[in-house]
């Protein structure tokens, strides 16, 4: 990507974040926004910015960056431009965890997050085990197939779990599955940021390996990559990253699919460039989608996952049109 594209991406991100901070049901003066940013929660308006809007924007940034980076890594490793983080059973597993926690009546605010993360972790472990057990073809096709199967199983489990649940609980579960940043607080932002930074560091470190893996298994082996080990490690890190975002914000669809395609179209060639570009673009997309989710039908909120899909689909169609 050229310097101009990078500048444009960062400008877009800054603009979107700024608009997100000043937009909302409570009118907030610019001075109060700045006060809130600095942490001087002097008056109510500054408090709204510091305790509600800022963590919400921060959560959107990390969720978007994480999903997009996860998507870049998975698309390159599977050599499939339609691969996305939720393909690995992450979304299904997380949803099972969240539904179980909701039905069990967990009241602690972290309970649903932890249960979702645990569910995603179990699903990913199952995917890797199933793929390894299939023997020779422990490369990416086996992992993708295992992900689809475990995902289907998780969906069935959710339907069984929700079949007997009261309707309010079904609505809560559905709402959670459609993704939202409305539950953002600094604690969630903090733990998600830690996971995201560690995972992003590992993906960037493995950048050249991912480049080589994107050539295909035989070519990667010929160039000096331990194909199966490297593929599994990238999958695992990408899955953990996606699982953490799901635990924090539910299912935010399309970001992991469409943002990698956008940065490739913008000229990202190496995996490291694509990872960094996708982090910026993904962050901007999710925060922008959240603004739409908040204001489109205010005071009601639209599901974030639906908005990201509505924004993402035209992008994707435009890219397909230009793709040769």
């Amino acid at each position: 990507m050229t310097v101009r594209v990078w500048v444009a991406l960062f400008v877009a991100l800054a603009l979107v974040a700024a608009v997100a901070l000043v937009t909302g049901p409570v009118p907030v003066a610019l001075a109060d926004v700045l006060a809130g940013l600095r942490g001087h929660a002097g008056n109510g308006a500054a408090l709204v910015v510091h305790n509600i809007r800022l963590p919400r924007v921060a959560l959107g940034l990390v969720v978007g960056a994480g999903l997009a980076m996860s998507g870049v890594a998975l698309q390159a490793t599977t050599r499939n431009p339609l691969a996305e983080p939720y393909l690995l059973g992450v979304s299904g597993g997380a949803a099972v965890g969240a539904v179980v926690a909701t039905i069990a009546g967990a009241s602690h605010p972290m309970a649903v997050e932890l249960a979702a993360f645990a569910g995603a972790g179990i699903a990913v472990a199952a995917v890797v085990l199933v793929a390894s057990a299939s023997g020779a073809a422990a490369g990416s096709p086996a992992l993708v197939m295992a992900g689809v199967v475990i995902g289907a199983f998780a969906n069935a489990a959710i339907l069984v779990l929700l079949a007997g649940a009261p309707s309010a609980m079904v609505r809560d579960a559905l709402w959670w599955m459609m993704g939202s940043l409305s539950g953002a607080d600094w604690r969630t932002v903090a733990w998600l940021a830690v996971v995201a930074i560690v995972a992003a560091g590992e993906l960037l470190r493995a950048g050249r390996e991912i480049d080589v893996l994107s050539l295909g298994d035989d070519a990667a082996a010929a160039l000096g990559v331990e194909v199966e080990r490297a593929t599994r490690r990238v999958f695992l890190v990408a899955a953990i990253l996606a699982a953490a975002t799901v635990a924090a914000a539910g299912l935010v669809g399309f970001v992991g699919l469409v943002v990698p395609a956008i940065v490739r179209a913008l000229g990202a060639r190496s995996s490291r460039e694509a990872l960094l570009g996708a982090a910026v673009a993904g962050a901007a997309l999710v925060v922008a989608a959240d603004i739409v989710a908040r204001v489109a039908r205010a005071p009601a909120e639209l599901p974030l996952g639906a908005v990201t899909a509505l924004i993402g689909v035209p992008f994707f169609l435009a890219r397909m049109r230009h793709a040769r």
Binding site: A76, L215, G216, A219, A221, A222, L223, G224, V225
Partner: peptide, 19 residues
């Protein structure tokens, strides 16, 4: 594999890069 790749280069039969 890295050590092998420093002593022998292989052009596999087929290759279909993702990007």
């Amino acid at each position: 594999r890295r050590e092998v790749a420093r002593v022998v280069a292989v052009v596999p039969q087929r290759e279909d890069p993702a990007f």
